[in-house]
Nucleic acid binder design. Structure first.
Lengths: 234, 234
DNA sequence: CGCTTGCTGATTGCTGACAATCAAGCGACT
DNA sequence: AGTCGCTTGATTGTCAGCAATCAGCAAGCG
């Protein structure tokens, strides 16, 4: 008998699927930072009950995409400079650990897989499919972190990358030098494949160092102005 | 006018308070790893509706203390070797970042506060109040991370420390050399106070290195046997 | 005797209605 | 004019009941 695909992927719990819908709207920028979310409205649009929407919003709150003000409102998280600084510094720490562990137990097949994704990235840039390139960039980092075989780390990293994506959409931030980006990634994955844990960690950590320094500077200067993002009241 | 305490702390949402109750039961070891949790039973004991219990359990699931098996059951998370390894490695990365940032923007008053907590730790050990000492140990680490002024980091760190505490209760693990513990902490806080970010990060990261190495070894050897903890089926 | 199949009780998932809370606007009083 | 207190409409928080799903067991079949 031919192997059948599991139906569980279809049978996702309703609240999870509701969360998926709302999440994509947020990540695509349809719902901008600070936007108020009404339980009733969402429940009508998604054709589920308010309780289900509530559960979905609670999940998104844990992922950092949504914020709850008790008894008052739900709103899409802000994209302030301090938020961005938090996101990028945390990302560095998580990906540093991920790269270290990945390098420590990398297999030959893993290396092939990483190089394949890196090649996709190169192709996307060469063909000027920059949106794709950003997605592949994320995939590459996710793949490296995946090699750590660390469930908690993988989950936290997923949430952080989501927030990075969200902040990029809100602030209109885009990489300015794709060639340098490619070079950095290639160096990172080769170091991981070589099994050099210390060096891999450093590279992963410094990957966003420029961005972090810029944000820290903005923070000290006096708070607000995150690209084109409107500041949410904190 | 003297500063008044917010009343919101009393007016906590019902589901938060329900989560608090269940959480303490788990952390105190009343509910052991792998124990099944029935929504109906909990709702009767806490005198709230099942929906509220459900919301509380979802929160605890995000904190890593409880696990949901869809359509089937809720259970207290396992305390396997791999869980412990994940928890301690993540802890190292988070506290490393925390210590680095703390050292970078530490103030004189912060130093006084850290030294005061360290002194409490010393007193607790001298008076052989070892349970207190463990709590103060956690407070100290929390205080350092707090100096980073990093909300996301602080929250994640809180969750990780909870899981550390849970694992300690389940496995019966206790420090064996309190004098060494004191010395390590003192060195860490003095380095933070001195503003030596690199060194502080390294110290914070290596604080649990021995435990991590032991766990990694156990993991490679062949999975199960986390102290006296019963292994939960993963 | 071993395997499949269909039931059954228990448990979780979801919904609609009710209660508590909030912010905003209006009017009275100082 | 400005502040306080009330009312009101909107929104979130909580509840109790119905529907969907599952693990286990017993009957049927080879």
């Amino acid at each position: 008998m031919a192997k059948l695909a599991s139906l569980k992927s279809e049978k996702r719990l309703l609240d999870r699927r509701a969360a998926d819908q709302i999440r994509s709207h947020i990540l695509e920028g349809v719902l901008p930072a600070g936007e108020r979310l009404l339980e009733t409205q969402l429940s009508e649009e998604l054709e589920v009950s308010r309780g289900t929407v509530r559960s979905a919003l609670a999940q998104l709150a844990n992922e950092g995409l949504v914020k709850q003000v008790a008894f008052t409102r739900w709103e899409v998280s802000g994209a302030s400079v301090s938020d961005a600084w938090e996101i990028y510094t945390l990302r560095g720490a998580l990906e540093g650990l991920g790269a270290r562990l990945a390098a420590a137990n990398v297999q030959a097949a893993d290396g092939k897989r990483l190089r394949a994704i890196a090649e996709e990235l190169v192709q996307a840039v060469r063909q000027k499919r920059f949106q794709d390139a950003i997605g592949i960039d994320f995939d590459l980092h996710t793949a490296i972190v995946g090699l750590a075989h660390h469930k908690r780390l993988a989950e936290q990293h997923r949430f952080i990358l989501q927030q990075v994506r969200f902040h990029m959409v809100q602030s209109g931030f885009l990489p300015d030098d794709y060639e340098a980006l490619i070079a950095e990634h290639q160096k990172l994955i080769e170091t991981v494949i070589a099994g050099d844990a210390d060096h891999a960690e450093t590279l992963a950590r410094n990957h966003n160092e420029a961005e972090v320094k810029l944000l820290a500077k903005l923070l000290k200067q006096g708070a607000s102005s995150a690209g084109a993002a409107r500041e949410a009241a904190s």
